[in-house]
C-alpha cells in the first residue's frame, strides 16, 4: 500500500527506525554543525521539551545553548529563565550576543511555583525560549510540561542532574553532557529517530572566548590613587578613570 506508507511518512509523530523524524517546525540552529546534523529538524526542537543533563555544573551547559539563545533574542523573542540556580550575569550574556532586553528571570520559592511558571511560559505565545532549572520533578510533571510545550512553539529546555538519565522522560530530546579531552562530549540519550551510540564531540571552542586563555592576562582595573604605582608597573595596564 504505497499510499498509506506515503501518508505515514508525512506524519510528524511517526518515523522510520533508522531515520531521523521530520519535525513539523524546523529546529533552532544550535550553532554547531556536528550537533545540528544529528537533531531532527536540524536544530534544537521547538514545541517540545529538551532535557540537558550536565555531568557537573559549569562544564558548558549554557555555552552550548548560547548561539541558539542569541539567535532567538536577535529575532525579538523573549527568553524566560525560570528558577535559575545562580544569578545570570549580564556582562557574560551580552558578550555571548544575547540581547539583555529580551531576558526575563523568574525566581520561585517552591517547586510547585517553578512548574506553574514554566507551564504558563510554555503555554503562552510570548516566549521564544523557556529555560527551567527544576529541583524536583517527576514523570507526571514532566508530561504536563511536555504537553504545555507542544501547545506553543518555543525552545523549551530543562536542566536536570545527570542522575536523571536513568528515569524515563516524555521529552523529545535528552542530551547528557560530559567533559572529554579538550572539549565537550554530547551523548544524545533520546531523540525522535534512531538512537545514536557515539557521543558528539564539540571542540574546545566552547570554552569562553578561548583566545584569551593560553596567555595570562594581566589586566588591572585600578582607580584608587594608592595602587596607581602597581598599575603603572604592569605591562598591559588599563586605567579606568571613574
Amino acid at each position: 500500500m504505497p499510499g498509506l506508507a506515503a501518508e505515514l511518512d508525512q506524519h510528524p509523530g511517526i518515523w522510520r527506525g533508522g531515520e531521523l523524524a521530520r519535525s513539523a517546525c524546523p529546529g533552532i540552529a544550535s550553532g554547531y554543525a556536528a550537533l545540528d546534523a544529528e537533531l531532527p529538524g536540524g536544530g534544537w526542537p521547538c514545541g517540545a521539551l529538551t532535557e540537558i543533563l550536565p555531568q557537573h555544573e559549569g562544564i558548558g551547559e549554557l555555552r552550548l545553548l548560547g548561539p541558539a539563545l542569541a539567535r532567538l533574542a536577535s529575532q525579538g523573542k523573549f527568553i524566560a529563565w525560570i528558577a535559575p540556580p545562580h544569578l545570570p550575569y549580564a556582562p557574560a550574556l551580552a558578550a555571548a550576543g544575547i540581547a539583555l532586553a529580551r531576558i526575563v528571570i523568574v525566581k520561585t520559592a517552591r517547586d510547585s511555583d517553578t512548574l506553574w511558571a514554566s507551564e504558563q511560559a510554555l503555554g503562552s505565545a510570548a516566549c521564544g525560549g523557556v529555560l527551567v532549572w527544576p529541583r524536583q520533578i517527576n514523570y507526571t510533571q514532566l508530561r504536563r510540561l511536555q504537553l504545555a510545550a507542544e501547545g506553543g512553539r518555543s525552545l523549551a529546555v530543562l536542566f536536570r542532574p545527570s542522575q536523571a538519565a536513568h528515569e524515563p522522560t516524555p521529552a523529545a530530546l535528552r542530551i547528557a553532557l560530559a567533559t572529554s579531552a579538550g572539549g565537550l562530549a554530547l551523548s544524545i540519550l533520546k531523540r525522535r529517530g534512531a538512537p545514536l551510540s557515539r557521543p558528539i564531540l564539540l571542540p574546545a571552542s566552547l570554552a569562553p572566548a578561548s583566545s584569551h586563555f593560553p596567555r595570562s592576562f594581566d589586566a588591572h582595573v585600578v582607580d584608587s590613587t594608592t595602587s596607581a604605582a602597581v598599575a603603572a608597573g604592569s605591562i598591559s595596564a588599563r586605567l579606568a578613570l571613574a
Binding site: G76, K77, F78, P88, A90, P91, L93, A94, L100, A101, I103, V104, I105, V106, K107, T108, A109, D113, W116, A117, Q120, A121, S124, A125, A126, C127, G128
Partner: peptide, 26 residues
C-alpha cells in the same frame, strides 16, 4: 507575542510577587 508578553508577566507576578520577575541590564 506583543499582546501575550505583558499578560504572561502579569500572571507570573500576581502569583510570585512583583520582585520575583525581573529583567537584567548591564
Amino acid at each position: 507575542q506583543e499582546v501575550d508578553w505583558p499578560r504572561l508577566i502579569e500572571r507570573l507576578r500576581s502569583r510570585l510577587g512583583a520582585a520575583a520577575v525581573h529583567g537584567i541590564v548591564q
